[in-house]
């Protein structure tokens, strides 16, 4: 399948993300980025020695963490975003085939049927949302120390630390996959992707 030499690019484009979806993604990414950065400044000894200012960094980390769900909550006012969330939520038989192909490292598009979102994107979205809420909950337990029993707080620290590491690795994978696919990035940046790319990567999607 090779791109047709289409003179008019716009005619060969399809809409992938509405402005509300893109701004929700942008705001969430920014907040998540600040959370990860301040976490690193608090946690990695070399960076902590470089920056210090512990009280300030803690404050920034706490408030960006609390603000992290806000863009999605605001975005829920958008019909397009709710529609995308509903697509992310539902798994069909083709998603099972996609996941089995991914486990086999079978990269042929014919083995990886996908609607607007492939099964990997769906799993990532659901897990990242759950993990963010767990980080938020455990973070609040560490922040407002008098709200929960002592035992819980030690547990919250443990979960917050290890999940931070896991989330960092998964986020790096998310960013790495975006870096490897300029057209996917264009979709999130401008809202449109080429029809050729859409048919190749999301063969079941009928935009």
């Amino acid at each position: 399948m090779s791109p047709r030499p289409d003179a008019d690019r716009a005619a060969s484009d399809v809409r992938r993300f509405s402005p509300a979806v893109r701004w929700t993604h942008r705001a969430t990414a920014l907040l998540m980025g600040v959370c990860v950065l301040t976490a690193a400044l608090l946690y990695v000894p070399a960076l902590a020695q470089l920056v210090g200012r512990r009280a300030l960094v803690v404050t920034v980390h706490e408030w960006t963490g609390v603000a992290l769900p806000v863009p999605v909550l605001v975005g829920l006012g958008s019909r397009a975003l709710r529609a995308d969330l509903s697509l992310l939520n539902r798994f069909g038989a083709h998603d099972g085939r996609w996941l089995r192909a991914a486990l086999r490292r079978d990269k042929r598009p014919s083995s990886r049927p996908a609607h607007k979102f492939n099964a990997g994107q769906k799993l990532y979205a659901a897990w990242a949302a759950g993990a963010t809420l767990v980080m938020l909950g455990t973070g609040l337990m560490m922040w407002f120390t008098h709200l929960t029993p002592l035992m819980w707080r030690t547990g919250a620290t443990f979960v917050h630390d290890w999940l931070a590491l896991t989330l960092g690795i998964v986020l790096a994978g998310h960013i790495g996959m975006a870096m490897a696919d300029p057209e996917a990035r264009r979709g999130m940046r401008t809202g449109s992707v080429s029809r050729v790319w859409a048919e190749h990567e999301h063969s079941l999607w009928r935009p």
């Binding site: 539902r90 998603d95 659901a126 809420l133 767990v134 455990t138 035992m151 030690t154």
Partner: peptide
């Protein structure tokens, strides 16, 4: 693609549940 099983919701709730179990089982 809107008729399949709500696996996304299950994964999200499962992650929340694992987080809670992690807090309690941390020691």
């Amino acid at each position: 693609d809107t008729r399949g099983a709500p696996v996304g919701r299950r994964v999200l709730l499962g992650t929340l549940g694992l987080g809670a179990v992690g807090v309690l089982a941390a020691p």
